[in-house]
Design a protein around this nucleic acid. Sequence first.
DNA 1: AGCTACTCCTGTCGGC
DNA 2: TGCCGACAGGAGTAGC
Length: 290
Amino acid sequence: MPELPEVEVVRRGLERWVAGRTVAAVEVLHPRAVRRHLEGADHFVADLTGATITAAHRRGKYLWLPLARDGVATGRVLVGHLGMSGQLLVEKPDEPREKHLRARFTFTDGGRELRFVDQRTFGGLATEDAGEGGLPVRVAHIAVDPLADDFDADAFAAALRRRRTEVKRALLDQTLIGGVGNIYADESLWRARLHGARPTDKLTRRQVDDLLEGIRDVLAESLAQGGTSFDSLYVDVNGQSGYFSRSLAVYGQLDRPCPRCGTPIRRESFMNRSSYSCPSCQPRPRARRS
DNA sequence: AGCTACTCCTGTCGGC
DNA sequence: TGCCGACAGGAGTAGC
């Protein structure tokens, strides 16, 4: 559920509240939380106990925290993905346990603990070797996200137009562009006045540039407001919600007027989820001839 | 190889 | 009330 801005908000919280601290103990309360750690929960716990978290990184919707022992990097990293409903919370040890608490980390300084809470258990944690340039292997397939310094707009435009699929599918493909999910895909398509079913190989370079500008703007604006949250599921490490939901033009705005032209926003089913768009600004493409 | 559909979960909401 | 289906911000994977 959380997309790039929401995950970046969490990363900043981890950097501020967790980096530099040494893990005293780890408790895994639900096996699914570490299901992608193939060596098992005990190995996961042993890998982290006594390790110092040195930083907090993000690519797309993945987070990873490098580990050190005795001041020396171990070459291992803690990788996390929030999935649809995951939260990483920094809380006082005496706070009551959340209903969906899946793992908790205490620290040698006796201060606030780190909790992984995840209602739907689509998210997860694992440790692994830091790969090339410190990038974990399980994150390596994720494309550089559009807010990163090394994002290559020309390469993105070329790769997008090489695809033979619909533009919204492409935006949700994390190997093509990192960090965009259902909300920000719809919002950026609206900004670029494109219907999500437009074929990628028919987009002009100008349209791709408009789309990219829409993506960058909407992600940056959302991040500046602390991300989007409709309810208490999407929060920073202190449990606080962002405010960008007030600024959404189309997502979740069925029958409300398009902020640009006033036409009521429509909802369509797409890839088994909802897509919102303006029928006037974003006309559906004619069926592709095969 | 590239693309699509399915699947993993829990909770909430609206209709009957 | 309660039961049932639809839906929720993701992504790995099997299969075509």
